[in-house]
Amino acid sequence: MKKLLMVLSFSLVLIGCSNSETAALEEQIEELKEENEELRSELASKEEEAEASIKSDVEEVKEEEVAEKVEEEDTNDTLQFGKQYIVEGFAEFTIDEFEFVDEILPPNTSSVYSYYELNNSNNIYLLLTGEIKNLSTGTIDTGNFSNDFSGTAFYKNDFTYDNVRFGSPTTSDSNFHNDRIDPLEDRLFYIYVEVPKEVSDNIRDVEMEIEINRETFYIQFD
Rank of each mutant, 00 (worst) to 15 (best):
P196E: 07
T75I: 00
T152V: 15
N108M: 12
V70E: 12
R40Y: 06
V112A: 13
E88K: 15
C17V: 13
P106G: 05
V13C: 04
T78C: 00
F189G: 02
L128I: 02
Y161W: 01
A91N: 07
D96N: 07
I191T: 02
E88D: 15
F10L: 10
D173Y: 10
G151C: 08
N19V: 12
T139K: 12
L79H: 05
V70Q: 07
S56R: 13
L135H: 08
A24N: 15
N123C: 09
V7M: 08
F98T: 01
V61L: 14
Q80L: 08
D158F: 00
D102V: 01
E34N: 11
S121D: 13
I104Y: 01
L126H: 03
L39P: 05
E21T: 11
L39K: 07
L135V: 07
E37M: 12
M208W: 03
C17G: 04
D57W: 09
E72I: 00
G143Q: 05
L188W: 08
L14P: 04
I203N: 03
L5D: 10
L14F: 03
E30L: 14
N157M: 08
V7L: 11
R180V: 06
N134P: 06
D158T: 13
L79S: 06
E47Y: 08
V112R: 15
E27P: 00
H177G: 11
F154K: 07
E48C: 01
L25C: 00
D74T: 14
L5E: 11
N123T: 11
D222S: 05
G138N: 09
S121G: 02
S45H: 11
D205I: 06
E30C: 05
D205F: 01
S111V: 12
V101E: 01
E215P: 04
V13N: 04
E131W: 11
F81A: 03
L188S: 07
P107A: 04
E34S: 10
D179L: 03
F154D: 04
Y113D: 06
Y115H: 12
N175F: 09
N163G: 12
F166A: 02
L105T: 03
Q84C: 01
V61T: 07
D173W: 07
G138I: 09
L12I: 03
E51W: 06
Y192N: 05
N119D: 15
A44G: 00
T129I: 07
K33L: 10
V7I: 15
D162W: 00
S111M: 14
G16A: 15
V58Q: 06
E34H: 10
V87K: 08
I124A: 04
S18A: 15
N122T: 11
I212V: 08
P107V: 07
Y161A: 11
E64M: 13
T75A: 15
G143Y: 08
F217L: 14
L128F: 02
E59G: 00
F166I: 02
I54P: 01
E117M: 10
N76R: 14
R165D: 11
E71S: 11
T22V: 14
F189S: 02
I54V: 13
E97R: 02
H177E: 11
T171E: 15
I15M: 14
E42M: 09
S172P: 01
P169F: 09
A153M: 13
R165E: 10
V87W: 02
